[in-house]
Amino acid sequence: MTINRYLSRRTMLSTGAAALGVAALPRLAVADYTEQPDIAGGVLKGKVMLSGAPPKPEEILISKDHGHCGEGAIVPDPVRVTADGYLADAVVALKDISQGKPWSDPGTVPKIVQARCKFEPYVQVARKGAELTILNEDPLLHNIHAYELIGRARRTMFNIAQPQAGQVDKHVLKMRRGDVIEIDCDAHNWMSAWIYTADHPYVGVADSKGEVSIDRIPPGSYELTAWHPVFGETAGDVAVKAGETSEFSVQFKV
């Protein structure tokens, strides 16, 4: 399988309606995953890094609802990187695992909250086909608009209005071919969130120190991918041994 290295969000989206390269392929069925409750396996511990100067953040002016949303400008897709180059919010995932630990943590019940005109969390992982819970805590209209990214195209998955505080909607995350869901609010164009969907629970989101750890992995060699909302996807190889912790590092280059 080929991977688009360093495919940035900008590249993904700027081509707009440009064709889907693989359009003539039939839709993939959701891969089967068998849970093995007693698996011990090995652990992968990694660090995600950014080399080179982070791009100039794209700011959007808060143009309405100042009472609840605040004043000034907001960066919808922030690059959170420490002074020594560790990058938060990247999703690290193993490729092609058909059996292993049960889906419990992370992402059994994905949930997204709209509070003070921001989505929370910014990046999360979810099982493909899971039901997403959507909550509006603000006393004003948000519309949660989810898109599946497929290659360079993006397709609306659903777009639901939540005009009042306390409203809850649920929507099943049915993916056609992609892994990544982009979430916007058309009423507040600075709001942005991302959901990375997977068939198996061997995925994790890098924390504010760029650290991510995945446990109970069946021993073996794997391809590992790392994806970030701004920098796109990169990949590498890792090996996992039973009862051991193996370390890896991923670097996004700008």
């Binding site: 519309n143 397709r155 609306t156 659903f158 777009n159 639901i160 209005a161 939540q162 409203q167 009423a187």
Partner: peptide
Amino acid sequence: TGLDGSPMPAYGSK
């Protein structure tokens, strides 16, 4: 139902 692909969201349940 809204107009999927546009910013017009679905209001049916509201």
